[in-house]
């Protein structure tokens, strides 16, 4: 009895940690590899979540669609939509300074939130959309959540392997070069803007994928879920705590910070009712405090960035 209770608690915990790991990996492509400062993660997350919802739910008079398409189509659609949004923003802002990009991404986050809230024909407005299907709906609900956890973990692994490969490929090396010294990289003939744009789009597509996984996991989405705090800030703390530039760090950070965040939530819910709202307000404060302590004492995070060796993968393997 107790064991099933624990598992019942662990499965959603791990599922969400996995979803945040996907977001954190997406941010790592943008910030860790390319030094692009995106604080509009919530926007890409939301676009991904809503895209897959519209694509995979059965037809409804309340919002656009749904088109009742299979789960993989939803995931791909989510990535495409987030990628297109990133392309639009990137073309305008990527040749600007880091702080301008940052404020532009805040703006995108805000506009996406406004659209989700106000364009009811598209998103059913503040009432949100429920009944987003999980894959394999012939299974019993318990088995289905377990299978879904496995799907999420498999996607984390695929994303990890794919961008780890990219980081070692010439593409990733150019990105690192641009991040370290933009002038030198453009002097050797690298198209800085193009590489940045590619990194921004790729990272945003991964964030959109994370959003899609979230939508199917939770089964219900509304504009409330895409509060700038929830999606954006937590992911930043995860990546910085884990170690920006290190993909394993990004995953580890997501796990650790999500556990801490969940534990504080667990504790806040155990508080007497009159203290509950106060305790809930204190949770983001503690996460913010943690970020500051990490920045002051260990800015490189739990796992340091490991630059790929200059002689390539072969040389690195021999060297060990």
């Amino acid at each position: 009895m107790e064991l099933t209770g624990l598992i019942g608690y662990l499965i959603p915990l791990l599922t969400f940690a996995g979803i945040y790991a996907v977001l954190s990996l997406g941010l790592n492509v943008q910030w860790g590899f390319a030094g692009l400062f995106n604080i509009g993660i919530a926007a890409f997350f939301a676009v991904g979540a809503y895209t897959t919802t519209i694509l995979t739910t059965p037809p409804s008079p309340n919002y656009l669609g749904g088109f009742d398409l299979p789960f993989p189509v939803g995931l791909i659609g989510a990535m495409v939509a987030s990628g297109l949004l990133a392309l639009l923003i990137g073309l305008v802002t990527l040749n600007l300074r880091a702080d301008y990009l940052a404020i532009a991404t805040i703006g995108i986050g805000e506009i996406v939130r406004l659209i989700l809230k106000n364009e009811a024909w598209l998103t059913h407005g503040v009432r949100g959309i429920k009944g987003i299907p999980k894959p394999f709906d012939t299974l019993s609900p318990e088995v289905q959540t377990l299978v879904y956890l496995l799907i999420v973990l498999a996607i984390v692994l695929i994303v990890y392997l794919a961008i780890e490969r990219l980081l070692r490929a010439p593409w990733g090396r150019v990105l690192r070069a641009i991040r370290e010294n933009e002038l030198a990289a453009s002097a050797v003939g690298k198209n800085v803007l193009r590489f940045r744009l590619e990194a921004f789009i790729l990272g945003s597509m991964i964030m959109g994928l994370g959003g899609a996984l979230y939508a199917h996991s939770f089964g219900f989405i509304s504009p409330e879920a895409f509060d700038p705090m929830f999606a954006t800030f937590l992911v930043w703390v995860m990546l910085i705590a884990g170690g920006s530039g290190n993909n394993r760090g990004a995953i580890l950070g997501a796990l650790v910070i999500w556990f801490i965040w969940s534990i504080t939530g667990f504790l806040a819910n155990r508080m007497p009712p009159e203290l509950m709202t106060q305790a809930a307000a204190l949770r983001p404060f503690l996460i913010g405090l943690m970020l500051q302590i990490i920045l002051l004492t260990r800015p490189e995070g739990m796992l340091k960035e490991k630059p790929p060796s200059v002689t390539g993968d072969e040389g690195e393997r021999r060297g060990r």
């Binding site: 910085i240 106060q278 307000a281 404060f285 996460i287 913010g288 405090l289 970020l291 500051q292 920045l295």
Partner: peptide, 19 residues
């Protein structure tokens, strides 16, 4: 890094006010 830190400071102030 200062940018990230100030983003965090903003969040901390906001939650403190709410607290």
């Amino acid at each position: 890094i200062l940018l990230i830190s100030s983003f965090g400071v903003g969040l901390m102030l906001r939650s403190l006010v709410q607290f």
